[in-house]
Design a protein around this nucleic acid. Structure first.
Lengths: 198, 198
DNA sequence: ATGAAAACAAGCAGGAGTGCTTGCTTCAGT
DNA sequence: ACTGAAGCAAGCACTCCTGCTTGTTTTCAT
């Protein structure tokens, strides 16, 4: 029954993917090498070579992994919102946490690197487009946005871009206190916009 | 009179700095090499070596150049605001243009790279701290913010982080139409916040 | 006009990353 | 127990970037 061998293979593959994301978040795109990732995953270089024939293969799988994870972070998370807070604030903080996570940081590095590397760009662009749509939909759902209100719809985009901008700032100096206050202010503004929170 | 030689030297140095910024904006931090910058500037490799002994020297000068230029982009630009638009919208668009410029893109790349490269981080952090202060002050001035209103002060930070987030998105796909609408929505929100625009 | 200094060009060695190839070890199926 | 495939380690060649060093041209001062 089952296939311990294949199971082992799958586990190694997953470790490699996780290590890639970790590497992207910690040392960035340029600093991420196959050697480094293999060392992080605790596997040999040949093992990595076996699972992902080329560096591009590893990257492709890692990008998909990152965007899948980010999508999971927001889609249908209704029940995971902080119940002790107003809904807009809870959603905004959930978004901010997403960007601050390893996956969010990795995504930021990938994003910036893709803006200059044509081949990476070709790889990331279509995946990101889908992710962007799903993130928008998920955020709009959590915020209970009335799609008939242009201002409310636009505010969803503002929320996403703002939290991403805040996340970018957090990369360099994680000034939690200030960020918290900033996000709270935005959440307060959000609450006043017609078409939000039903 | 004067020293044509030294003037020529100064011009070459400036060309190298401009080429560095251009390189950062176009091919990013990792893609920026001394050789590439020299080629961009139309100067020989030896010339670059002469002006900036080491790569770090070039980088240091380039970072200062970038932040100086960005500061100039917003400080005391009262008279350059688009007079045909409401003040908040004009200021927001000026900020967005700043991040979309070569200097803004270069700054984004530097920012992200510095988050992983310790030595670059040490170089960028203090300079960025000063820049951040001046940008805040300049933006608050242009928006005519009442510093006694916490919400208004917080909104300045939101405006800066938001435009930076939008700029990050623009790096990959410059969807001008959508961004314009988004910024307009934010400007409209800004106008409703007490303590803004006097 | 001539010598000195600055500006510039080009070649060279060291280091790092990538991908390929060669062997050795472990495990599933017979 | 045996065979074949997967997992794994190590070495090699190639490329690119960096920094150093030498040689040539241009410019200024006398």
């Amino acid at each position: 029954m089952s296939q311990p061998q294949q199971e082992r293979s799958r586990a190694t593959r997953q470790r490699l993917l996780d290590a890639t994301v970790e590497s992207l978040a910690e040392v960035g795109w340029a600093g991420t090498s196959v050697v480094g990732v293999a060392a992080r995953a605790g596997v040999s270089r040949g093992a990595a070579q076996h699972h992902f024939a080329t560096r591009d293969d590893l990257v492709r799988a890692a990008v998909e992994s990152v965007l899948d994870e980010l999508t999971r972070h927001m889609v249908h998370r209704e029940s995971d919102l902080d119940q002790g807070k107003e809904r807009p604030l809870a959603v905004v903080e959930m978004l901010a946490e997403m960007w601050a996570s390893s996956f969010g940081k990795a995504a930021t590095h990938l994003w910036v690197a893709a803006s200059t590397d044509p081949s990476l760009r070709d790889l990331v662009l279509p995946l990101e487009k889908r992710f962007s749509r799903e993130l928008f939909r998920a955020t709009a759902d959590l915020l209970r946005v009335d799609r008939q209100e242009p201002a409310a719809v636009q505010s969803v985009r503002l929320t996403i871009d703002l939290t991403r901008g805040v996340g970018l700032g957090t990369l360099l100096h994680p000034d939690l206190q200030r960020r918290k206050a900033e996000l709270a202010q935005w959440a307060a503004v959000l609450a006043t916009i017609p078409g939000i929170g039903v």
